[in-house]
Design a protein around this nucleic acid. Structure first.
Lengths: 344, 344
DNA sequence: AAACCATATGAAAACGCTTTCATTATGGAT
DNA sequence: ATCCATAATGAAAGCGTTTTCATATGGTTT
């Protein structure tokens, strides 16, 4: 007795069981119009009964979508940031039956390489994390290849591409107000990368908020650290090495805030008694620093989830606003690196 | 005058230009035998001239390979660890013209879901990071679906699946010897997750090395922290809260070492003057801790690269040793959390 | 009653490759 | 000269979908 071949279940198997044509099965599976309700149900039943799994490659070859979303980056942002993004994007992909492919383009990647990648994979969409979201070459290639693209925390806007960000201005304003409310009047600031819009926003918010509170800030207390720990060390040294030093420092991200704490420690300045320090991002390190860092949490995972969602909606033909970014909320995290300003 | 259609370049275009059949082109592109050198060259030239990009989906549909490698994980290890893995795997994939798709399976993922994923994507290979590398359900599914799988730092071996790891025993031995050479005689140990082979290895190495140096370790000085920061806090408290306390603590990873430093700080114990602390992994946090952590660096990126390489070789039909893991070297990183043992 | 339209359906033609199978050189060994 | 194995090649048959196209059906509108 010949054993039944355990062959793969194809769309025609489903068609046979449901008593319809493969065309109809395809229609049902892709949610098209013009299928009678009873047949639709029959197809769904048959498909479930047989545990039918459409072949991604056949679909991609025949249709022109690919069921793959790309998460693209160039110089990697922090690992925690990146894997948060990834988790968010993955979750959303799973809901929609898509898959996430990751790809790295470093500074040396030429246009050809990018285009070759794009034309080979024909991504259904691409998510760009900073700083790739501002990589002109990459953006141009994506546009030429007509790959729907969502950008995360980009600088400015790019025609036809939606983006997701937080309200950096408000967040930085809130953080500055926190320090002011603790009685600090002499506050320093360490900016990120001036190329990044978010960095410029945070700095502007700091300046505006200080001015609104009638507090002046010597220019020497405003330094740039490029979002890097090392840059933060230099910036902190530049600020704290002066005769006149502030009683609080607002670093534009946690890496640089950690650097401030290191420098303060080296200079025998007590944090938070003599110097309050705040950061931005809430990376895992923030809670293990000593003292634990007061910071502003970015909803990293959520941002990627939303970005993926935008792409999925675009693919479904929904109209998406591409001129204004989707703005998500931050969360203020109070820990022990901030305290009331010391008696003057 | 009709403008020339900018249509996609297919294999038959290449065939025409090279003056051969598509079969021959396919043969050349897949490195098969039985193609005369001159024709081979003609194909290569034509392909380069036309900038031909084989369609991944058509290839996957026709052949039975998929040009996709999967990086699979369940409960995510640290973000830095994961993104290091990813970088390594991606690099190797790029060299081989493959792409990396990432997928997360959490504790609640049922077998069906995994199998559905596997049969839909027909991965050319899968890389499992810990702890997914020991997930029985996942492993069984991969085996059933015949997906070539490489495991990273697994517990034990699994028939037919190669793995990559470091020599945990030697590394932990070296670390223990470092402490002993500094004059420490009273050393505590915080173990990781007893389920993990690497954790058991590190503990055994510690015990053996201490014994070899004729040093005894009270059982209360050996605690388990499960590789987690929180677990490390408890373990550190259990060790340092006693009347008799050690002059050094070896934590099985950096997260727990960070916890030791936090607890020491809380108990007003100076590190490294009164207590030396060492970790394992060299996560980025290690260098910003205060004091900076002496630790053992795992070649995370390299491990993933090697794992990807193993899969690629397997696909090419090379014979791979699956009984013995590939062992990579660690690197001892001396920072300032260790010092000579205090005078007794 | 003819003409029209929206709805519903399936047969068959792509999609761009790999692989099978049949056929034709090629170069010794008999 | 004849035969055989092996090297080299291409025509054509898949691979499992989506999409196009043709056709059928049952109202509505002229």
């Amino acid at each position: 007795m010949a054993s039944k071949k355990v062959s793969k279940i194809t769309i025609s198997d489903v068609a046979r069981v449901a008593g319809v044509s493969v065309t109809t099965v395809s229609r049902v599976l892709n949610g098209e119009r013009y299928v009678r309700e009873d047949k639709k149900q029959a197809v769904l039943d048959a498909s479930a009964k047989l545990d039918y799994q459409p072949n991604v490659y056949a679909r991609s070859l025949a249709g022109d979508r690919s069921y793959l979303l790309g998460l693209l980056f160039d110089e990697a942002p922090g690992g925690e940031y990146l894997s948060g993004m990834q988790r968010g994007a993955m979750r959303r992909c799973k809901e929609a039956g898509l898959h996430l492919v990751v790809e790295h383009f470093d500074r040396t990647t030429v246009l050809d390489e990018i285009e070759s990648f794009l034309s080979k994979l024909k991504l259904s969409g691409a998510i760009l994390t900073p700083p790739a979201c501002d990589n002109k070459v990459l953006l141009a290639a994506l546009e030429r290849k007509k790959v729907p693209t969502a950008r995360i925390s980009p600088s400015g806007s790019y025609p036809g591409m939606p983006s997701v960000k937080i309200n950096d201005f408000e967040a930085a304003q809130q953080m500055t107000e926190h320090l002011i409310s603790l009685g600090h009047k002499k506050i320093g600031f360490i900016a990120g990368d001036p190329e990044h819009a978010d960095s410029r926003e945070r700095l502007k918010a700091f300046r505006d908020t200080m001015a609104a509170a009638k507090l002046t800030v010597p220019e020497e207390w405003i330094q740039t650290g490029g979002y890097l720990f090392e840059g933060g060390l230099d910036a902190a040294m530049a600020i704290l090495g002066q005769r006149q030093r502030p009683t609080a420092i607002f670093a534009s991200n946690d890496d640089m805030a950690a650097a401030v704490i290191v420098i303060a420690d080296r200079l025998k300045i007590n944090v938070p008694e003599d110097l309050s320090v705040v950061g931005f991002d809430d990376i895992p390190m923030a809670s293990v620093l000593s003292p634990a860092l007061t910071t502003m949490r970015q909803p990293v995972e959520e941002m990627a989830k939303v970005a993926a969602g935008l792409l999925i909606d675009m693919q479904k033909g929904k109209k998406i606003a591409t001129d204004e970014p989707v703005v998500l909320n931050v969360e203020f995290i109070l820990r022990s690196s901030t305290a009331a300003a010391p008696e003057s």
